[in-house]
Amino acid sequence: MMRVLWLCLGCLMLALGVIGAFLPVMPTTIFLILAVACFSRSSPRLEKWLLESPTYGPALRAWRDQGAVSRKGKTYACLGMAVGYVLFWWGAHPSWRLAAAVAIFFVASAAYVVTRPSPREPGPGGEPPGG
C-alpha cells in the first residue's frame, strides 16, 4: 500500500515538474528531486529513468550525491524567485505585511539555494572526489 502511495506521489511530483518546465515562474527541478525521492521508495525503474535523463539527470544526481546545485541552477532559481515575487506584487496587490512575509520567504529560500555547494568534478572513475 505504501509503495502505491509513494508511486502516486512521485507521479504527481513528476507532473508538476513537467508543468514547471513550460511555465516560467514554476520550478521544475525541485519537483523532480521530490519525484526521484518518491520513486526511490516505489519504482527503481522510474528513479533510474529520471537520474539518467540527459536534461535533468546531472542536476538530480548532483543534488542526491553531493547536496550540490550548479551555478547556473542557483542563478535560475534566484531569478525565478525574483520574477515570481514581482508577479505576485503586481498581480495580488498584497498588504505590506503579506508582501514582507513573502519577501522574507523568498530571501530565505534564495539564501538556502545560494549556500549549497557547487557540484564537484568527477574523478578518474567518473565518481566525485571523495565519493
Rank of each mutant, 00 (worst) to 15 (best):
R3L: 01
V4Q: 04
L5K: 03
L5Q: 08
L7R: 03
G10N: 01
L12E: 03
G20E: 11
V25K: 06
V25E: 14
T28N: 08
T29L: 11
F31I: 01
L32N: 01
A37M: 02
F39L: 09
S40M: 10
E47W: 02
W49E: 06
L50C: 07
L51H: 03
P54I: 09
T55N: 13
Y56V: 13
G57W: 08
P58W: 12
L60H: 02
W63K: 02
W63T: 02
W63F: 15
R64D: 12
D65Y: 03
Q66K: 08
V69D: 03
V69R: 06
R71Q: 12
G73V: 05
G73N: 03
G73E: 06
T75W: 15
L79P: 05
L79I: 15
G80V: 08
V83I: 12
V83C: 09
G84W: 04
V86R: 04
L87I: 10
W89Q: 01
G91N: 12
A92S: 11
P94M: 12
S95R: 06
W96E: 09
A99N: 04
A100F: 15
A100M: 15
A100R: 04
I104F: 10
F106T: 07
V107H: 05
A110N: 07
V114L: 15
V114R: 10
T115S: 15
P117W: 06
P117I: 06
S118Q: 10
R120Q: 04
G123V: 13
G123F: 12
G125T: 12
G126P: 08
E127M: 15
P129T: 03
G130Q: 12
G131I: 14
G131Q: 08
